[in-house]
Amino acid sequence: MMSEIKSALKKNETVVKLVRLFNKLLNDRISKNISGKNNKVLFSPLSGVIKCHITINGNNNEILVEKGVTLNNLKIFIEGNNCLIHLRKNVQFKDGGTLWVEDNHGKISIGDDTVIHHAELAVTENNSKITIGSGCLFAYGIDIRCGDSHSIIDLGNKERINHAKDVVIGNKVWMAAHTTVLKGVTILDNCVVATKAIVTRSPGLSNVILGGIPAKVIKKNISWAHERM
């Protein structure tokens, strides 16, 4: 049945013209510099792009943008193989930012209805990922990274000691301006990260405010809302 529907749509001149128009508008707003094999950049026809620059160097990478996503001046960079960047329904990047993935099998995933004003997200090692839940609110100057990009070596045994660790941010997390989340951190649902906080360890609690350098729990048993009440 699905194949018959797709075949019928392809024969419908109006549908074909609309698809061509959408692709033209999308290409006008998205600049691409892609090298390698089997790389996929899939934008829903119901997404909105003001300006987006995509660079891919590698093979079998995928960028998936679902319906309702709005991108304004976002830069996406993949250097490696078998990486995935997935922006789920209604994600918004309002004022730019960067999604950066290096090496192989890296992943950035952002959940439904998350609004980001400006953020830099960096996945910089094999098999590492940043996962952000649904309904989050990020201000500007946000920095999230799951690796250090360079090596720190133990002089005793000559082994590297600073391997990457995943970052997980739960649902409905509010990150205020100029906050940083470093490797290995999990922030649970309904938390607030105060302005200029640097989160280096997982608090292990939901519904808390985190603040300071390094960040610690400064208030428990809270929730938050977009509206000023």
Rank of each mutant, 00 (worst) to 15 (best):
D166P: 09
C136M: 04
V101C: 06
K75S: 13
E120H: 15
C83W: 03
D154Q: 06
V167I: 12
S128M: 12
G147L: 02
L87A: 02
D166M: 11
V173N: 02
I142F: 05
A119Y: 03
G58Y: 04
K75A: 11
N81A: 10
L46K: 14
Q92K: 15
G111L: 02
T114Y: 00
S134N: 12
H105L: 12
I108Q: 02
V167H: 04
E62C: 10
N72R: 08
V115W: 12
V69Q: 02
T114H: 00
I54G: 03
R88G: 00
L121P: 01
G135A: 00
S134L: 03
N126D: 15
G48C: 09
I78W: 08
C52A: 12
V49R: 06
G97H: 04
Y140W: 12
T98L: 15
G96P: 07
G96R: 05
G106H: 11
L121A: 03
G48W: 12
I152A: 11
K89E: 15
I56D: 02
T70H: 14
K107S: 09
E120N: 14
V115N: 13
G147K: 03
I108P: 01
I50M: 14
K165L: 15
E79R: 14
L64N: 11
N162L: 12
N157G: 08
V101N: 04
G80M: 07
N57M: 13
N127G: 05
D95C: 09
D154R: 10
E120T: 15
I169T: 02
K107E: 14
I85D: 03
L71H: 04
Q92S: 14
V173S: 03
S149Y: 12
N162T: 09
K107V: 08
G170K: 00
W100H: 15
H53K: 15
T131I: 08
P45K: 05
T55G: 08
A139E: 12
V115A: 10
K75R: 13
R145K: 13
A119K: 00
A164P: 11
I153L: 08
P45N: 07
H118Q: 14
D166T: 08
N60S: 12
I85A: 03
L74D: 06
S128L: 07
H118K: 13
G133Y: 00
F138A: 01
K51F: 08
I142K: 05
I54H: 07
S109Y: 03
E66M: 08
S44R: 02
G135K: 00
I144Y: 07
I108V: 06
H163E: 10
L74C: 08
G48M: 13
G170L: 00
W174I: 04
N90M: 03
I152Y: 09
K165W: 07
T124N: 15
G111H: 01
G147V: 04
S109V: 10
I76R: 01
N127W: 07
A139T: 09
N126L: 08
C136A: 04
N73Q: 13
R88C: 05
H118R: 13
I110W: 02
V69F: 00
S149Q: 14
F138R: 02
I142T: 09
K67C: 09
N90S: 15
N81K: 06
N157T: 10
E102R: 15
L99P: 02
